[in-house]
Nucleic acid binder design. Structure first.
Lengths: 234, 234
DNA sequence: ACAAAAGTGTTCCGATTACACCCATGT
DNA sequence: ACATGGGTGTAATCGGAACACTTTTGT
């Protein structure tokens, strides 16, 4: 007996990664010149196909490992782009994967010919196909999630200062925050552990380093925060 | 010249819909007995394959139209389940689609042999494969989104009373709410328009009907609300 | 000594909560 | 007239915003 499945049209399934980093000053995004046709040589997101024995997450992890050298980084499915006309010739459905990495851990030029490059989020080149749309969606997602969850730590080194963290929030939301209130709010979460060491680069006085309390972080990730603005509805 | 695409493994792409409804008392979910092998006769979500010229959204709309008779309903991609081992024999990647419908508009028994049935969210049968997981994720998603966005209106008729709406919130969050505070909050959004008519079924005094101000609803959908609990983090 | 950034403390205000009270009506 | 649920009002409380003030240290 024939299976119902044999009537179905198979299609190609890919992933594209929107990878954010923070260099201490600006929010950055990783892009790469495509190494193959079509669109060879143009800027695109880091991507690849989902292989036979891979899930989306497996494929994204593999691509990230290959192109950045990083493992175990924060990632999540964002949105699947499945418009049959999105790629001209072949039908490809692609899952946009949202990823946050500590930019300091990123190893440069692992790849030989084509290697990824960091762009300031405000100075991105044009990206192929619908990758610009993916980036815009990812920026929104970053703002949305970071307002509710302790997410931005993923972009910082394991040791960081409160002013550094504040600067990151200010970058993400393109705003300025009151340091007093920021301090109170961020410390009131109980997610940070103060270290004895100080960072002396940013100021004369120096700012204490903190690290994330991993236990509480993992346990409380789902809790709602609300760093940026109060809930209001016009 | 050979395309890079010809090396890739094609796969089958499907959708499964998690469809919520509210009968005025309980939160409900639509399920159907599968009409084909494998798992024929078992309870499952409403689903189907993504056809050649369809996006995920197209396919979901088609399946919903076929099985419920409804068009133009609220839906969104929720999550793609892509574990290569999720279905035993054939590899199928499936997009779980989250949908909210006005249960009163639902037409019964459009389909002949196998027709969908509503289950109370707390008394669901076991569903095939990973559909239980999808439902749990959808319940969480509903709570999450409805706490921040004016989403639950989608589950009510175009005319509804504030007590009805409150009851819906209480169902979704399995809690009780203070009617005074609920009134103030919901009306302060400016999203509701009071009608002259009253519903006399629920009480002797009768409760005024309201409708959604569609303009403001569409404009302000993204605004954060926070109906249910204040942002707290332990 | 002073500039500059870190960090703390205080006041004010608006939003939320809890709860009391009034209203309309079918029986 | 009274029970029932709809609807409004209010005092107490909490949390966030604004901003002043203190601390530390390199020059």
């Amino acid at each position: 007996m024939r299976s119902i499945y044999s009537d179905q049209t198979p299609l190609l399934f890919a992933i594209d990664c929107i990878i954010f980093g923070f260099d201490g000053d600006q929010l950055k995004l990783l892009a790469i010149r495509r190494g193959f046709e079509p669109y060879k040589g143009e800027w695109s997101l880091l991507g690849g196909f989902v292989n036979k024995n891979e899930s989306i997450e497996d494929a994204a992890a593999r691509v990230l490992k290959d192109l950045t050298g990083l493992e175990g980084i924060y990632m999540e499915q964002m949105h699947v782009f499945s418009d049959p006309k999105r790629e001209a010739k072949t039908r490809i459905v692609t899952a946009a994967v949202f990823a946050l990495i500590d930019i300091n851990k990123y190893e440069k030029q692992i790849h030989k010919e084509y290697h990824p490059e960091w762009f300031s989020i405000n100075e991105l080149p044009n990206l192929i196909v619908d990758h610009d749309e993916m980036v815009n969606m990812a920026k929104e997602r970053l703002r949305y999630k970071a307002a509710l969850h302790p997410l931005l730590f993923e972009l910082l080194p394991s040791k960081f200062t409160i002013p550094q963290l504040q600067h990151l929030y200010e970058e993400v939301y393109n705003t300025t925050l009151d340091k007093g209130n920021f301090n109170k709010k961020i410390l009131s979460t109980g997610l940070l552990v103060k270290l004895k060491e100080k960072d002396k680069l940013g100021s004369k006085k120096g700012a204490f380093y903190y690290k994330v309390d991993v236990k509480k972080y993992n346990a409380g990730f789902k809790s709602f925060l609300n760093f940026v603005h109060k809930p209001t509805l016009k």
